[in-house]
Amino acid sequence: MDIEQLQAFLHVANSKSFTRAAEKMNVVQSTITTRIQMLERHIGKDLFKRDKRNIGLTSAGRSFLPYAERIVDLSREGMKVTQLEQTFHDQLVIGTTHALWDYVIFAAIDDFQKSNSQISVRMITEHSSFIIRKMIDGLIDLGIVFYPAYHSNIESIPIIEDTYELVATPTFHLPDFPLTSKDLRTLPYIHLNWGGSFSDWIQQVFGNHYIFQLEVDHVSLLLKFLESNQGVGFLPHSIAKRLIETGEIISIPFMSDTPLPKRIIYMVNRKRNNNIDHLEQLISCIQRSF
């Protein structure tokens, strides 16, 4: 088994085509076919089920896929580390979600880089589970996630117990009294599912399987629809406070029989990290940003 065989396997798995995989790897199709056959012979099982129209993963192929991805990722990281020595003293890889990058952590990374120009910083945007998995594999140095990592080689540090705020744009007509859960059913409510305890709270308020008139999956979309629909929506306080300070949104007084939930944001990093000096400085910058 070699890296080229694994790369061929991943390209075919993603594209569901030997032809497209060959184009991606800049080889002829017969080369891809040979690499897959050699890999299947080495593993002792078929990885793909083939017919005239479709190519799909077998049960063995689905099981093997995440391991192949990790092996190729590790190989790629090894090459980068070797090449890094020619230009930078070190590299830090940081992972978190879109919302935290955009509205909380960006300034902290900017501050860190200004005083550490000799350090290469690579930023990864993904869900918490993906970030933790990559950290276990040694591919991420520091992650900001929404739940702790339960692994012997990873340390989870609570940064903040975050709350949620009901928000709208400044042109929203602010009522003389706090809004309630019932008002969310009559106002243009734009829903962004923050997961975890927030999902549980929404289910208690709206009931199971409630379909919202408008649901988004990104803060920037939420802000656009708040403005165009003159509606309301929920943001974590860590994100809302910066937008309130800049005057982009306002906080709406809100009361609920079921109290709004809280959630802890965690900083996770690998124990015995070789980049410890620079990592501690970066951690300080991020903690200040919260």
Rank of each mutant, 00 (worst) to 15 (best):
D2I: 09
E4W: 03
L6H: 05
T19R: 13
R20Y: 13
A21Y: 01
E23F: 09
E23M: 06
Q37T: 04
M38D: 15
R41W: 02
L47R: 13
R50Y: 07
D51I: 04
R53Q: 11
N54W: 03
I55H: 04
R62L: 08
P66V: 08
P66A: 05
A68N: 04
A68Q: 03
R70A: 12
E77V: 11
M79R: 15
L84N: 12
Q86C: 04
D90W: 04
Q91M: 14
L92V: 06
D102M: 02
A107Y: 03
D111S: 13
I119Y: 11
V121L: 15
M135D: 05
G138P: 06
L142S: 00
G143C: 15
P148H: 05
H151L: 01
E155R: 10
D162I: 06
Y164T: 06
T169A: 01
F177S: 13
P178K: 05
P178V: 06
T180W: 00
T180E: 07
K182G: 10
K182C: 08
H191V: 01
L192D: 05
S197H: 15
S199Q: 08
W201G: 00
I202R: 08
Q204Y: 01
F212N: 05
F212H: 12
Q213S: 12
Q213E: 12
V219H: 11
S220V: 09
E227D: 10
Q230F: 08
V232S: 01
I239C: 02
I244F: 07
E248L: 07
I250D: 00
F254A: 05
M255I: 13
M255W: 03
P259V: 07
L260T: 15
K262A: 01
R270H: 07
H278R: 13
Q281N: 09
Q287F: 12
Q287W: 09
Q287L: 14
R288P: 01
F290P: 04
F290N: 09
